[in-house]
Design a binder for these strands. Structure first.
Length: 820
RNA sequence: GCGAGCGUGGUGGAACUGGUAGACACACAGGACUUAAAAUCCUGAGGCAGAAAUGCCGUGCGGGUUCGACUCCCGCCGCUCGCACCA
């Protein structure tokens, strides 16, 4: 073996052998427990960045560890290949998006292989291929059949820079999530998917998954389920009624006005006779988005001059238009109770509308002052409410709801913040929506005519979608009537592709169905690893798709991802790596300089996965240094040719026994850190400690030498999930013939961990005063006696009265004293 | 504004169930090897006092619970993330 550690030589040899032997190819095996470990697949942007390296190393370490522990581990990889960057690159470089994308994939695949990730490449998929998206098109036509997909004219978020429609989730503070441009409102015919039909399940099944609370909370808030009452007001002289939704029916007697959204039909029709109101409405549609990002947009409104009748008092109540009322939540109109809703209070105060208290606190409450703010607690008692007086929130809610139901004008309803998912995009580089526009209306494309293939030989010039201009794509024949028809030119939101790729990996070879029975062998994903930035969008959509797939009989589980691990960001100089800040680190340069094992080791060592990772070039050099030390440790052992003769622990010298104990402590620690805690940094630190101790150890006796040799082998195994190339090479150098990837993970010799002598800590009043060597078998009385006799302890017991003594077995003794 | 998380040496971090604070590493300093440097190896190190033994202080700040608190509770300060008129 070479005296010098040469990572590039070792790594390419080892990788070639993995490739040749198909080491990571996986099939279903009923005799082993399965484990499906999935990392979020990348967008093929051109080259890997540090975030990818970190994400995929975490998954690879866990996968390799579990494989050594007898699991049948599936770890696939693919490409989230549709999306706008390809179109932008096409405009810039005059390259078709497809060619650009496939080139990037080829390069990044090479980088992933260089990093030594153990993927089953036979299952690789790219979402931009017809083999993949044909099943998405198939699923979409099933959704149309089931009424889950529908078309409606809707006000949509229009991104003027990207020239596309955005989902609500893609609008951040009134700006496009990718372009950052101010979003405008437009009316467009759109495809929607009824994710709201699954809102309850999406909410309730969160209880069943092992996800970070933070992510679950974000999803719960996003779904935003609320219980309330929907009821309607009579509109005198109009013959129709005004619907409102409230979560506070207990305050119904405090209504002093009703507010409608600026785009509400009542506001629009009232504006026809009132130029001032019309001007205000026009202003609102412009302001809506522009001011959405302001923390506290001022409340503005205008009276319509119309009114409704209070359903319980018969009073006449004015209708106002208010800019803070949302058209697409509830019915776009609210009952206003300024005494008990802060928004209503601010509005009423501004426009001089009456404030009527109908809830009083049960006990004196200094925050109850309706001249300064609304009182919105649900802990009060109803007042000024006639027959409803003296009730708690729950009682009043039930009584008012019952009364409105009895009158036939209302009922208890559940509302959601979550909206249906608009999935159409006016972009070229995406999956074609498989429908035809015929003279009989819109029709889904028949199964036998799928896939609708996206033409790849196009010129993208930024002037709208090239698909619209492709007559050979657009013009077709309605198979039912044989008359001309046009294909839809909108494509799917790319979140559609990423919503089911995890399932396709598990059924990658199925030719004539979206998924086959193997999907149920692998699913659900046991561990899903990725960035927290996908906490809402991607993870919610994928959960929704999974339930749809389940209802179509394609999968048998309720949830796609059993456990979720969200990794932190990679930082440089305290902030996120970005091109604009110029603080990026290119993983390729590091692989070239130090090798993949060093890069893997450092990214795992620098911080635990959920935390952000501060990049340090010096730290990488340090990680490399450690691997060189391990390398030369093995080198020395190979040169010395220590015998592997049989030996027993009682033949070991004192020092050797201590090292042997350290070895098994380390095995226990590393197993727990990798297998349970996913804290690789401390696992690595433990191996470093062991290696440090081994370097100081000079084996002389035959048994010591044999034990030392074994310890070296175990170190190589303990590091192997993290530095698989080096470990594979060293394993062979140590004369092992069995392939490393089939070797079982080291087991702990429990006897090695027991000690005859323990070190206890002695405290006086909680302060550390001495250390004590005691026999493991010593009784509490013996320990106390020994502790009291320590000079350092006596010094502090001198002249004191001992109140009590606490003995914590294996750990410490604490004397509680006070001055005599 | 609301919600969640975090705050430990010069730096990244460790201390998992309340029981030796600072493991491991980086940077730094001193030494060995070398003609010299790099590489490698050894040693040192939270702060203050002290030659040392040792003592006191110390996990954002203030309080509390406890024999004992980085860890639990209350209040503040700071940073990060998410949501932001959802009636």
């Amino acid at each position: 073996m070479e005296r010098d550690y040469q990572p590039s030589v070792i790594e390419s040899i080892v990788q070639a052998a993995w490739d040749a032997d198909g080491v990571f190819r996986r099939t279903e095996d009923p005799n082993k427990p399965k484990f499906y470990c999935l990392c979020m697949f990348p967008y093929p942007s051109g080259k890997l960045h540090m975030g990818h390296v970190r994400n995929y190393t975490i998954g690879d370490v866990i996968s390799r560890y579990l494989t050594m522990n007898g699991y049948n581990v599936l770890q696939p990889m693919g490409w989230d290949a549709f999306g706008m960057p390809a179109e932008n690159a096409a405009i810039k470089n005059q390259v078709p998006p497809a060619a650009w994308t496939y080139d990037n994939i080829a390069h990044m695949r090479g980088q992933l292989k260089q990093l030594g990730f153990g993927y089953d490449w036979d299952r690789e998929l790219a979402t931009c291929t017809p083999e993949y998206y044909r099943w998405e098109q198939w699923l979409f036509t099933r959704m149309i059949e089931r009424g889950l997909a529908y078309r409606k004219k809707a006000r949509v978020n229009w991104d003027p820079v990207d020239q596309t429609v955005l989902a609500n989730e893609q609008v951040i503070d009134g700006r496009g999530w990718r372009s950052g441009a101010l979003v405008e409102q437009r009316e467009i015919d759109q495809w929607f998917i009824r994710i709201t039909d699954y809102a309850d399940q999406l909410l309730e099944d969160l209880e069943t998954v092992d996800w970070p609370d933070q992510v679950k909370t974000m999803q719960r808030n996003w779904i935003g389920r609320s219980q309330g009452v929907q009821f309607s007001f009579e509109r005198p002289g109009h013959g129709d009624r005004l619907e409102v939704y409230t979560t506070r029916p207990d305050t119904i007697m405090g209504i002093t006005y009703v507010a409608v959204a600026p785009s509400h039909p009542i506001a629009v029709s009232a504006a026809q006779q009132q130029p001032a109101l019309a001007a205000f409405l026009a202003e609102c549609t412009q302001m809506k988005v522009a001011e959405a990002d302001l923390a506290q947009a001022p409340k503005r409104g205008m009276a319509t001059g119309e009114s409704v009748i209070h359903p319980l008092t018969g009073e006449e109540i004015p209708i106002w238009v208010a800019n803070f009322v949302l058209m697409d939540y509830g019915s776009g109109a609210v009952m206003a109770v300024p005494a008990h809703d802060q928004r209503d209070w601010e509005f009423a105060t501004q426009y001089g509308l009456p404030i009527k208290a109908v809830i009083a606190p049960q006990e004196a409450d200094p925050s109850y002052d309706l001249t300064t703010a609304a009182w919105t607690e649900k802990t009060g008692i109803t007042i000024n409410s006639g027959v409803f007086d003296g009730l708690t929130f729950e009682q009043a809610f039930a009584a008012v709801a019952a009364r409105l139901t009895e009158l036939g004008i209302g009922q208890i309803t559940t509302n959601y913040r979550l909206r249906d998912w608009g999935i159409g995009r006016q972009r070229y580089w995406g999956c074609p929506i498989p429908v035809l526009h015929t003279d009989e209306g819109i029709k889904p494309v028949r199964d036998q005519d799928l896939p609708v293939v996206l033409p790849e030989d196009v010129v993208v010039d930024g002037q709208g979608s090239p698909l619209v201009r492709r007559r050979d794509f657009v013009d077709t024949i309605d198979p039912d009537t044989q008359r001309p028809a046009q294909r839809e030119t909108d494509t799917f939101d790319t979140f559609m592709e990423s919503s089911w790729y995890y399932a396709r990996f598990a059924s990658a070879f199925s030719q004539d169905a979206m998924l086959d029975q193997n999907a149920n062998y692998w699913l659900p994903v046991d561990l899903y690893i990725g960035g927290i930035e996908h906490a809402i969008l991607h993870l919610l959509y994928a959960r929704f798709f999974h339930k749809v797939l389940r209802d179509l009989g394609l999968v048998s589980s309720d949830e796609p991802f059993k456990k979720l691990l969200t990794q932190g960001m990679v930082l440089k100089d305290g902030s996120k790596m970005s091109k604009s800040k110029g603080n990026t680190v290119d993983p390729q340069a590091l692989i070239d300089q130090y090798g993949a094992d060093t890069v893997r080791l450092f990214t795992m060592f620098a911080a635990p996965p959920e935390q952000s990772l501060e990049w340090s070039d010096d730290g990488v050099a340090g990680a490399h240094r450690f691997l060189k030390r391990v390398y030369s440790l093995v080198c020395d052992a190979v040169e010395r040719d220590d015998a592997t003769a049989p030996w027993t622990p009682d033949q070991l010298s004192e020092d050797a026994r201590e090292l042997y104990r350290k070895l098994h402590q380390t095995i226990a620690k590393v197993s727990d850190d990798i297998g349970r805690r996913y804290h690789f940094n401390t696992a690595i630190a433990a191996v470093m400690e062991l290696v440090n101790q081994m370097q100081r150890f000079e084996p002389t006796k035959p048994a010591d030498r044999a034990m030392y040799r074994e310890a070296i082998e175990q170190v190589v195994l303990l590091l192997s999930p993290i530095t698989p190339h080096l470990s594979t090479y060293l394993w062979q150098a140590l004369g092992q013939t069995r392939p490393l990837h089939t070797v079982a993970w080291p087991t702990v010799d429990a006897d090695a961990l027991t000690r005859d002598v323990l070190t206890l800590v002695v405290q006086v009043n909680g302060k550390l005063r001495a250390r004590l060597e005691v026999a493991a078998t010593a009784s509490e009385a013996e320990i106390l006696a020994q502790a009291r006799s320590e000079p350092q302890v006596q010094k502090f017991l001198e002249g004191m009265t001992e109140m009590k003594a606490i003995v914590v077995p294996q750990k410490l003794v604490n004397f509680v004293v006070k001055p005599a």
